[in-house]
Design a protein around this nucleic acid. Structure first.
Lengths: 197, 197
DNA sequence: TTGACACTAGATCGATCGTTCGATATTACT
DNA sequence: AGTAATATCGAACGATCGATCTAGTGTCAA
């Protein structure tokens, strides 16, 4: 999908921007067509139907993320370092492709059966990387937690929530936010609270 | 709004369920009317228009949360205890009224000018409670953080994300999840990471 | 009995939605 | 050049949307 010169990829990119800005339901096929000054039939020719367009976006953006997380997951490094690398990679990609990520976690409800199946599979894979490393940490005694699943969900929540409010033109650089977010998560996972009372 | 016997309140409750399940845009006025076996004019008579219904839901549910958080905020207790109480109250209410909370953070994009203004004001107030106590903690040296705002956002992310996946019929009780989530946040805020290397 | 009022139903409006269709233009290959 | 595949177009379809209008209900006080 690297070739941006074809019209199909332009449709793809325009749809990403509009879905991210106005939501899947809030964006009509005509909106996309008008934005590009093309006919709506064009979009149907390339993507079948509206949900096909959304599924293509989800599949493409998640494939990139899953591939990156998988590479980190296969590294032969201590689990604590691995978790840190997963976070680093995840946050960096989520920030670099914030529009896709936004679509991914805003419009997951609006899918039909097939799209929902694909979406669930994507989420399951991403959660899997975290659950795996958290399980390692739990087995080796680095952390004590009652539910690895809840822990993984908490991590996911922090990472995705930043996309809700972060604006590049704000006072904080993305790098600063990334560090702050990572620090919060690492403390949430490993940190110990000193009992002052 | 306590009286559930009036038709207006039934519309209110039905709208909450449908908006939470299918989204604001995914739910039509006719869906609500059909669910109750009434005419759509009924809804327009009571709430003016569709957005009026959504704003009423947001206002009602947020008023309850803000009132509860404000009571905690005014307590004369150490800041660390206050943060813990805020979390406890927040999570408990978000869980007890999960449908409203779900609407609140799923459909915030779909508002017009007036609704968006109300919504922003609500969010600002809720963040305010956390920023205030975090500021106290920062001043008294309990925490070292570079950005109180980011910290507040992180807390918000963890709390709201659980509504995305928690199901009452799952293996975990809400109380268990609440404890796990609170522990994660408290560690994320106060915890220190031992430098093993 | 009457009239004011809150409430409800049903029909209907114009707009927009996702989708389809047949036809035309462009490109790639022989 | 000729032909088949691909890409694009404009028009239209049926459905549904939010919203409005009119015509009724029932209730209750005067």
């Amino acid at each position: 999908m690297g070739n941006i010169n074809t019209n199909k990829d332009k449709i793809f990119q325009t749809a990403i921007s509009l879905f991210a800005a106005k939501g899947f339901r809030g964006t009509s096929i005509r909106d996309i067509a008008n934005e590009m000054h093309i006919s709506i039939s064009n979009i149907y020719h390339h993507f079948g139907n509206k949900e096909g367009l959304l599924v293509a976006i989800l599949a493409h953006s998640s494939e990139r993320l899953i591939k990156a997380l998988n590479e980190v997951s296969l590294l032969d490094i201590p689990p604590k370092e691995k978790l840190k690398s997963l976070l680093e990679t995840h946050i960096r990609l989520a920030g670099a492709y914030s529009e896709e990520t936004r679509i991914f976690f805003l419009d997951e409800e609006h899918l039909s059966e097939e799209g929902d199946k694909i979406n669930r599979n994507i989420q399951r894979q991403i959660y899997g990387f975290y659950q795996k490393v958290l399980h390692e940490l739990d087995e080796t005694g680095f952390i004590q937690c009652r539910s690895i699943k809840v822990l993984a969900f908490n991590i996911f929540g922090v990472i995705n929530w930043q996309l809700r409010w972060y604006r590049a033109d704000g006072p904080l650089s993305f790098e600063e936010v990334k560090e702050e977010v990572m620090c919060f998560i690492m403390k949430g996972v490993f940190g110990t609270i000193e009992q002052t009372e």
